[in-house]
Write a protein that binds this DNA or RNA. Structure first.
Length: 564
DNA sequence: GCCGTTTTCGGCCCGACTGTTTTCAGTCG
């Protein structure tokens, strides 16, 4: 039973209780499930320490249920509920428009238990005959099943951000649009995005909504009103827009940026102060006392301004109250990029082209880190090629270029490039590229052995995960942190859109452990150097300040770090 | 079921849109 599985059971309990019209309990179970999901430690450890009730939303009853789950792997209360409602909630609930009440009705009237049965019933026209449902709902269900089958539910931040920014810019061209921002998980720079949320102020809502619904990329209009509209883009992602009065822009921006539990906490703070917070502002009775800017909203609630990337309800509100928010690294603090590839291995551009583009986007330095050693598929360089590349790098004067390589950590932890080559390399990146299926202890030792190599500077994409594809291997994080700190090795925040590895939770732990981090785009073409801001976003979401990130160092300081 | 610098009992975030309704329930964010 891991954290996610336990959380899932509580989500399902919430759902079933909601079907039974039980008041308030669903909210409590959902809250507990969210907290458990957000834990950065194994809940079993917390249980062993007897500290389950320190988890927000976990009280007497839920802590006992967690104990039962850990001890027996089962939960009697859950199984009892499940008997009354033996349906695949996760599956049915993942279809847009299917909430607890509809699921319940469909089970009671048509015995629908899963997606397959739902699809069959819809195709046979059985759903439209039920009271409270109709033809349109039936069509909607069928369509959403089709949508679910076609795409996964989430999209990579790095791929959606440019598309969303293009939409924002197009809308911003309209003269009646006075203000516009991307909001939601995009603004929080979450690694994957469920949909695109846009907030705007418009002097002509009708015209703005018409434009929004008729843009080139629109596949289907889902909802269209004067304050709120929703479309599906050809790329498969949904985009929502909300129009509000200028006086409410700040509170609406706050509200739409979320996340949900961050917002709920803020509303509770407002309430404790005798105020009411909604997307339209902060109200005292009927009088609006705040809402034009986000800064003002936080101030009115007695909080320091909280950067969007931190708004995940993981301690930031408390920190804002106590004036203990981190001094986050800024997007312009990063002065260079510490992982990229050229045509010496599997990249598309030359050393010079990479350097020129890096200069253009404002970098002061880069490290060229082509594959070396025995990774043949990625065109690992030979000793002779490494020397030739070094000469080419030395010719570049417009920007500081470090000569690096990306070497492989072999199954026994050895680096597959000999020391006599490594000793002349400025930046040695080591990474695991094979043997992902080894057990936790083996991988841990492998990483620790690699970090004992006296030339290694950076461990790249430390967990090996690929977003929406591969989970990544497990290892003892604490041991690797300790070794990195002792040995003066940085752990990478790989900024390639489907990696973002380390992730922000692990970055936060690394920062707490005083481990240095490096940002590398892993660019294989010059345009991909733009991904560096995704890496900064991960750092910010991990509460890092600029001293934690070696890319924010001056060149002198960075050179010292690299010489260890 | 959880929780408390106004509470150990009495509250629990708030509003828009749609479909199937003739006054509103359900879903979503």
């Amino acid at each position: 039973m891991n954290n996610q599985q336990i959380a899932q059971i509580f989500y399902e309990i919430a759902e079933i209780l909601e079907m039974q019209d039980v008041k308030f309990k669903p909210f409590a179970y959902r809250k507990a499930a969210q907290s458990i999901e957000a834990l950065t430690r194994d809940i079993k450890e917390i249980y062993k320490e007897g500290k389950l009730r320190d988890i927000p939303g976990v009280g007497e009853s839920i802590s006992k249920k967690i104990e039962e789950l850990i001890k027996t792997g089962k939960l009697k209360a859950y199984e009892k509920l499940k008997k009354k409602m033996p349906v695949n909630l996760q599956e049915l609930g993942s279809i847009q428009g299917m909430g607890p009440k509809t699921i319940k009705k469909l089970y009671q009237k048509l015995k629908i238990k899963n997606l397959k049965e739902l699809e069959r019933a819809a195709k046979l026209g059985k759903i439209r005959k039920l009271e409270g449902l109709g033809e349109k709902r039936e069509e909607e269900i069928l369509e959403n099943i089709g949508f679910k089958k076609k795409t996964g539910k989430r999209f990579l931040l790095g791929l959606i951000l440019p598309e969303a920014e293009a939409i924002k810019n197009a809308l911003n061209q309209l003269k009646e649009v006075k203000k516009i921002e991307l909001t939601g998980s995009l603004r929080r720079m979450k690694e994957t995005i469920g949909d695109v949320d846009i907030l705007a102020v418009s002097a002509d809502p009708g015209k703005t909504m018409d434009f929004f619904a008729k843009m080139n990329d629109v596949e289907k209009v889902l909802v269209k009103g004067l304050t709120k509209s929703s479309i599906r883009l050809r790329s498969g992602i949904n985009a929502d827009i909300r129009l509000v009065p200028l006086n409410s822009f700040g509170s609406a921006l706050q509200y739409m940026t979320g996340n949900k539990s961050h917002n709920i906490k803020l509303r509770n703070i407002a309430k404790d102060k005798g105020l009411k917070l909604s997307e339209y502002g902060i109200f005292k009775g009927n009088k609006q006392v705040s809402g034009k800017t986000e800064e003002e909203v936080y101030r009115k609630l007695g909080l320091r301004y909280i950067e969007p990337e931190l708004r995940e309800d993981t301690g930031e509100i408390d920190a804002a109250k106590k004036n203990k928010l981190p001094d986050l690294i800024n997007y312009n603090d990063v002065k260079g990029d510490l992982q990229m590839h050229t045509n010496y291995s599997d990249g598309n551009n030359t050393v010079l082209e990479m350097a020129q583009y890096a200069k253009k986007i404002g970098h002061k330095f880069i490290a060229i880190t082509d594959h070396a050693g025995n990774l043949k598929i990625a065109g690992g360089m030979t000793a002779r090629e490494i020397t030739a590349q070094g000469k080419e790098i030395n010719k570049i004067k417009s920007i500081k270029v470090f000569h690096g390589i990306e070497a492989n950590i072999q199954k026994n932890g050895a680096i597959d490039v000999p020391d006599n080559i490594l000793k002349d390399i400025d930046v040695v990146i080591a990474a695991i590229h094979s043997g992902f299926k080894q057990d936790k202890t083996t991988i841990t030792n492998r990483l620790l052995t690699a970090m004992d190599n006296k030339h290694v500077n950076i461990i790249a994409h430390p967990t090996g995960r690929l977003l929406l594809k591969r989970k990544g291997y497990e290892f003892d994080l604490q041991k690797v942190f300790d070794k990195a700190r002792e040995r003066g090795i940085a752990l990478e925040i790989n900024a390639f859109p489907d990696r973002l590895d380390l992730d922000s939770d692990k970055v936060r732990l690394a920062v707490e452990n005083k481990v240095k981090l490096s940002i590398g785009t892993d660019a294989h073409s010059k345009e991909q150097l733009d991904f560096y801001r995704l890496g900064i976003a991960v750092a910010r979401r991990g509460w890092a300040n600029k001293n934690d990130i070696i890319n924010a160092y001056s060149i002198d300081k960075l050179e010292k770090f690299l010489k260890r």
